[in-house]
């Protein structure tokens, strides 16, 4: 058979192939991004430059007025701080728990059962999880018995019930626990797959050389699955940066639990400019992570 003609196409044909994908990306990604950026420099209703919202006598950053709000306003500072807290706590917790379970489950017979249970919350939407956990944290302040699991347990052993969601300091951790519960299964399943893919000979060799199981894990397994760990971490970072549903459903951002995406949502109708500025900041925060992810991916592809 002669070489198929399709191999000898001109310069135009490849473009025709990518055109549909390109069109979709232009319409649904590029255009909205540009328009969002444009609107972030406009005022609250988008019909004048952002500087129109400046109040005489107050600090003003001209067309960057919405960014002044997004970076300096106390509500936003709190949201940014909370997002940082979410990143610092939820990402490591999810990865650590995922790794812990996948390593341990690897050694037991009922592995698939354990993994299914841990993975199950992934099937629940954020909103559903929020509603479920609101009941878990529920506090009855009148004369009725506690119906929230945590407070029922506390009161049954003689402690006072705790208002988990309205107490600053505790509530952020309470919300993060929901996030970890939802996403530990994700990190577990990916890390577990990576562990299973490790060549058994290497592990055997380490053990024959006298390495303890502890050393095998830290010195052999972990370095070998590091690329996968990075993928999980970067994915989790992006997910946590965009965290919204859990906070929206469970506290509405009240009691000091505000996060960036929730503020963006609250402002989208009442002050488009500010909302869009927050969106742009969120995008800017995500981009470096995306770059790391893409680089990782390319390196991995190159070594294949």
């Amino acid at each position: 058979m002669a070489a198929p003609k399709i191999m000898k196409q001109g310069r135009v044909v490849p473009w025709l192939y990518v055109l549909p994908a390109l069109a979709v990306i232009l319409i649904f990604v590029v255009y909205p991004t540009l328009n969002t950026t444009y609107l972030s420099f406009r005022n609250r209703s988008g019909d004048q430059p952002a500087s129109a919202d400046c109040i005489a006598g107050s600090p003003c950053w001209g067309v960057f007025e919405n960014y002044r709000y997004a970076i300096t306003h106390p509500d936003m500072v709190q949201a940014l701080r909370n997002n940082a807290l979410w990143l610092l706590l939820m990402v490591p917790a999810t990865v650590a728990i995922g790794l812990f379970i996948s390593v341990l489950a690897d050694r037991v017979r009922y592995e698939s059962l354990v993994k299914s249970i841990i993975f199950m919350p992934m099937a629940i939407s954020f909103i559903g999880a929020g509603v479920i956990w609101r009941f878990m944290y529920y506090i009855e302040t009148g004369g009725n018995p506690q119906i929230g699991v945590f407070n029922a347990l506390l009161t049954s052993v003689g402690f006072k019930p705790v208002p988990w969601l309205s107490t600053a300091g505790i509530n952020n951790l309470a919300l993060m626990l929901v996030g970890v519960w939802l996403w530990a299964g994700f990190s577990m399943s990916i890390l577990s797959a990576a562990l299973k893919g490790l060549p058994i000979e290497v592990l055997e060799a380490a053990r024959v050389d006298g390495a303890s199981e502890w050393q095998v894990f830290w010195r052999v397994m972990l370095p070998m699955i590091m690329p996968t760990v990075t993928v999980v971490v970067t994915t989790m970072v992006i997910i946590v940066l965009k965290i919204f549903d859990i906070v929206f459903v469970m506290t509405g951002g009240n009691f000091g639990t505000e996060v960036i995406a929730n503020r963006m949502f609250k402002l989208i109708v009442t002050n488009t400019g500010r909302s869009m500025a927050i969106a742009v900041i969120l995008l800017l925060l995500t981009i470096p992570i995306m770059i790391i992810n893409v680089r990782r991916f390319r390196e991995q592809e190159a070594t294949r």
Partner: peptide
């Protein structure tokens, strides 16, 4: 009020 401040914000 029922439950004081905690009751007000959580009920």
């Amino acid at each position: 009020t029922v439950g004081g401040a905690t009751g007000t914000v959580n009920t």
